[in-house]
Amino acid sequence: MIPNNFEYIRANSVQEALQLLSQKGDGARLLAGGHSLIPAMKLRLNAPETVIDISGIQELASIRRDGDRLHIGALVTHRTVETSDEVKSSCPVLSEAAALIGDPLVRNRGTIGGSLAHCDPAADYPALTLCLGAEIEATGPSGSRTIAADDFFVGMFETALQSGEMITRVTFPVLGKGTGAAYEKFSHPASRFAVVGVAAMVTLDGGGNCNSVRVAITGAGPSVFRATKVEQALTG
């Protein structure tokens, strides 16, 4: 219940956080909602030398729609995604899925950026991100780059983020007419992680045929993955 000691620094901007990250090196961890990091620290299964608290960076906490893109800041909480009118109208499946993460108290503090960076093999957001073909904005010392969800999830707890980078934004497509998406999850009775979770997005053409199908599965492998055979079978 008592973590090892560490140095705590609060970063008030992305710039500051990045500087601290490069300065402190491998021994530093970013703290956003804290619901993955702090439990591990309490059990002393993780003992970072430095904790850089980014939870107060306002610029990362907003949701904005820009045409057919929905931009969600990395520090937007699950609760905000769950309840945001913007998300509900632009990409309702995201709200529905956010409402299934952990429990209400976890959702009150957990963030989308934290969840994606953590990349738990049974987490919910990775499936949504992958299924919807979202883009992850990673910012590092040399600026920002955009990583397609298809390239982002590398392995168990492993992402395409490089050392010194942090997630600053996740961009989802606004689901247009003819496109529907759903997330179904079979929860572990204790942890509420997905034993298996399936996110699917289908776009129909005018004739009611499946134009495109994307299916992503979480919980059933070392990392989220696309069920390409299912996609092929359903397309057309």
């Binding site: 219940m1 705590y8 804290g34 619901h35 702090i38 439990p39 309490k42 904790v51 609760r79 209400p104 108290l105 976890v106 009150n108 503090r109």
Partner: peptide, 10 residues
């Protein structure tokens, strides 16, 4: 004002 697990916050 937001319900928070006070064991998961420093």
């Amino acid at each position: 004002g937001v319900a928070t697990k006070s064991c998961t916050m420093f």
